[in-house]
Amino acid sequence: MHPLHFQSSKEQGINVYRYLPGTQTAVTRHWPGLFQDWPPEPTPFTEYAVNNNNMEEVAVYTGLVWRLTAGLARYAIPTYYREEAAQTLGREPVLVDWEYDIEAEAPHAVRDNGFVPGRSTASSLRPDAWKDVNRAGLFNLSTPRDLVRLLHVVLLDASSEISVFAVAPGPARLKDLVASLSGSSRPSLLSVIRDADVFVDLTIGSDVDYYDAITVASHADLQPRLDALANDFAQRIEVFEGRVDGLTDVAAFLGVVPELSGIDLDAE
């Protein structure tokens, strides 16, 4: 079985694909240096949100999300940490009323709660944020590094979640996306995503009894693309695992992670 095996089903009238690795991570031979002291920045965490708990698989996830959504405009909701995300990215989000919620508290299953009312930190970072505490923040992702920056923020919790809406580029589609995530009526994925749009929910477990899960949804059949990406990542992971013992320091590690993830963090 590929390291990135997705189960497919039809849910809510659309195609849904789930990666549920349980205790088996995509990368199984880890760089020993993750468990040693690091010099000052850059580090595996500052560059890729990789640490000695959420390891190289996070770089694989970042690459998967970015490559799967190529050609589309990407907008993300980092669950709960809206204000911290705004500070990290250096820009304000569009506020919306609904966010997606996945609970991954079993090894090979998730509780898909669909869209739930948005929530955020009533943070001291900005005192007037109190008035919008029950709204989520939708952020534009310009480069993969933006996604890594959101991971820096949400990985504080036992389980963290980022939902990515990859839609047709342009202000009109963004306006419709915001409208579909706003208001008193609970939306569904069927109504939020259209045509060739791709929805990706990335859930990462950090504490015991919390697990990783990737949920992908689209009206289009994404199985061929997911299979191609799985094949490509299997090869990348094999090459990486063959090199880990020869990586002598952080710089060497950071030099090979782009090959593992298949992306340039600063490329659009």
Rank of each mutant, 00 (worst) to 15 (best):
R186H: 05
I102K: 01
S182V: 00
L181W: 02
V192T: 11
L189G: 01
L151D: 08
R186Y: 12
A104S: 14
G170E: 02
S180Q: 12
V148L: 07
L150I: 06
E103Q: 10
D195R: 08
S120A: 14
A104Q: 04
V110I: 15
S124E: 15
S188N: 08
V164Y: 05
A104V: 01
L174R: 13
A166Q: 06
R91I: 04
A196Q: 13
A109C: 04
A168H: 09
V208T: 09
K175P: 05
L150Q: 14
S191P: 01
G170R: 03
A136D: 05
V178W: 10
Q87M: 09
V96S: 09
G90L: 11
A109Y: 03
F115W: 09
D197S: 04
V200C: 10
R135M: 12
S180K: 13
D97G: 01
D101S: 14
T203R: 09
R135V: 03
A86K: 11
F199H: 10
E99I: 02
G118W: 12
R119T: 14
T203S: 03
A172S: 12
A168K: 09
V192D: 12
L89I: 10
V116P: 04
A104P: 01
S206H: 13
P107Q: 06
A104G: 03
A86E: 15
L125W: 08
V133C: 01
S124Y: 14
F165K: 02
Y100M: 01
D195A: 04
V208P: 00
E92H: 04
D101A: 09
G118A: 05
V153E: 07
E84Q: 12
V192H: 10
L174K: 13
